[in-house]
Every structure is written in C-alpha cells, then in structure tokens.
C-alpha cells in the first residue's frame, strides 16, 4: 500500500478521534472525572491557600467606595424553626436597622438572605471594612447579637460591643473570597510556598484555568470579581448630597 493511501486512511481516522476527544471534554464522564479525581489530585499536588475574604485593601479612592461584603453564616438550627428564628431576629429589629443605616451613612444597600441554612448578610458599603463593622456594632450591637446567637461559633462574640476586634476578624473570616477582576492575577496565587509561575519561567496562560479551579476548590464560596456597578466611583454620601435629600 502506498504511503499516500495509508495517509488517506489515517487522516479520517484521526479526525474522528479528534472529534471524540473534543466531545469528551464536555461529557458527563469527564466532568465527573475532573471533579472527583483530577481536582483532588491537583489540589494535593499543588495546594493553594484559602484566600482572605472581602474587598482587598487599597488606597485608591475608586476602590474604596461600593465595596462588597458577602457573609455566609451557617445557622445552628438547620430546620425551618431555625430559619424562622433568623428571619424574626431581623424582622423584629427593623427600626434599629434603618436607624443604623442612616446614622452610619456609608451603605448603598444591605440585605439578609437565607440560603440553605446559611444566614447571608450582603451589603455594599464605602470605606474601610473594619470601620464599617465597628460603626455598625456601635449602632446595631444588639441586632448583631441576636443574629450571631443563632450562628455556629457565634456565641463567643456576644456581646459584640465588648469583643469588637475579635468580632471584626470573625466577620472577615466569613466574608467570601473575591476572585480578582484581572484573570492573570491568578498566576500569582500559586501553590503554597511558591507562585504559580516562578520569575523567568515561561507561563502557559492556560494555567489560569487550573489556578481558578484550585482557588474555587480551596474557596468554595466566591464573589466573581469585585462586583458590577451601575454608578461606579460614587459614594453613598455623595449621592445623598447631590440628590438634595437633606443629608
């Protein structure tokens, strides 16, 4: 058989193998293999740190307004009764919450959401995280106490006004990791003890995909980027001022 005929036979066979491999990457079998075998394997081989949660420290004004907080607080009582208690802890303190929001003045919005036996506190605020929590504890200490009492590992914080620094750290630990807006930053979050790409080493940019997977393995809850804003760079105080609300 001539070489050309051999090649002609081989090419279609390779094309079909290629199609098979292409479809394999989207198959449920490979999805299972990746999730249950490959991710644990690479997480053991190249372990990554659990990243701190919340918005990152920065000195730039535009980064210090409309910062996102996403607390996930597991309820102690994982029944409907426990969830109802959490709902009532908020509903019975509406005056305190509104007065606190108005007095603190740096919050764009805040909400409490119960998701699968977690009390989630989600807010968008201006300024430094520690000061934000400190201001709210000063204004809403009793509300925090009534909510925190329902949360796993929360009782040691009560009363929060007397444990303010410990409480700030406790909250920070429960604020979800914010994946960087710039994907290539993931190359710098490497294996524990070393960057994903060492200085002078050739970086295969496809490593970003694995870096993201391993970050989400170490940080199952995540905010995708730093959030999306309809009026970026504007503080709540400035909006109130410009809108003529009398603040």
């Amino acid at each position: 058989m001539s070489v050309r005929r051999r090649m002609n036979q081989l090419v279609p066979r390779r094309a079909s193998l290629n199609d098979l491999v292409n479809s394999m990457s989207k198959s449920r079998l490979f999805g299972w293999l990746a999730g249950h075998v490959l991710v644990p394997y690479w997480a053991r081989k190249t372990p990554v740190h659990k990243q701190p949660g919340g918005a990152r420290a920065t000195v730039q004004p535009g980064d210090n307004v409309q910062r996102m907080m996403n607390l996930i607080l597991p309820l102690k009582d994982k029944t409907a009764v426990g969830r109802a208690k959490a709902a009532m802890a908020i509903a019975s303190n509406l005056d305190e919450i509104y007065a606190g929001l108005d007095n603190v003045g740096t919050v764009h919005f805040a909400r409490f959401v119960i998701i699968e036996n977690n009390m989630c506190m989600i807010s968008c605020y201006d300024g430094d995280f520690s000061n934000y929590i400190r201001d709210f504890v000063a204004q809403l200490g009793t509300v925090f106490d009534s909510v925190i009492a329902l949360i796993e590992d929360g009782e040691a914080m009560i009363p929060t006004r007397d444990n303010i620094d410990t409480f700030i750290n406790w909250v920070h630990d429960r604020d979800v990791y914010q994946i960087p807006d710039t994907a290539t930053e993931l190359l710098h979050y490497g294996t524990i003890g070393q960057p994903a790409v060492k200085s002078g080493e050739v970086a295969d940019l496809r490593l970003i995909a694995r870096a993201l997977i391993l970050q989400l393995h170490a940080n199952p809850n995540a905010l995708l980027g730093s959030g999306y804003r309809g009026y970026p760079g504007i503080s709540a105080a400035r909006i109130r001022d410009k809108m003529g609300f009398g603040w």
Binding site: G62, G225, G227, G233
Partner: peptide, 8 residues
C-alpha cells in the same frame, strides 16, 4: 486596563 469600577 483600569479597574472597572472607576467613575465613568
């Protein structure tokens, strides 16, 4: 690129 949350 500049951060997406700059004033526009």
């Amino acid at each position: 690129a500049w951060p997406l949350h700059r004033m526009r």
